[in-house]
Amino acid sequence: MSQPAHITVHLHGDPKYLAGVREMVASVARRLGVDELSCSQLALAVDEALCNVIRHGYQGQDERPIWIRIWPEPLESLKSDAPPGIRVVIEDEAAQVDPAAMQGRELDDVRPGGLGVHIIREVMDEAIYEKRSGGVGMSLTLIKRGNVTPTVGAQGPKGNASCGNDPA
């Protein structure tokens, strides 16, 4: 995204900030006109992404930096009739991993952990992992598009399951 972010947040990778970040991203999405279900799902996806950075990327070092940048999606949705969506980019300074390896695990193997990436991919329209330039850090782009026409009888998490924070 070449356009400057509309919102940029710099935080420490400390779990105690997760609730505040969830509330912030859901509130911003709501203000952009994103539907309530999508706001909840976005908050959940951002939470899971931050948890992965804190747990796996930083291995619990709670003063390491994380950046969150937010844009309307598409950018022109603010000034047009395009259904409002949101783009969130989360970046860190953790060791780089192969983006192709960022896949959800097999769910039939019931065990603690390893569900975050699956949840992120399930609730977002796009979740793109990339290596940051410079050889350090990863970037995750999360996109939730505006709904053009509600699907009657839609099933499953992308259709009708709410899962994030309540409205502020």
């Binding site: 899971e48 948890c51 065990r111 603690p112 952990g113 994030g164 309540d166």
Partner: peptide
Amino acid sequence: VRYMDSSGLATLVEAMK
């Protein structure tokens, strides 16, 4: 409980096991 993420799920899976 008003919200739960995968860390909560993992905790409950461990407890169930």
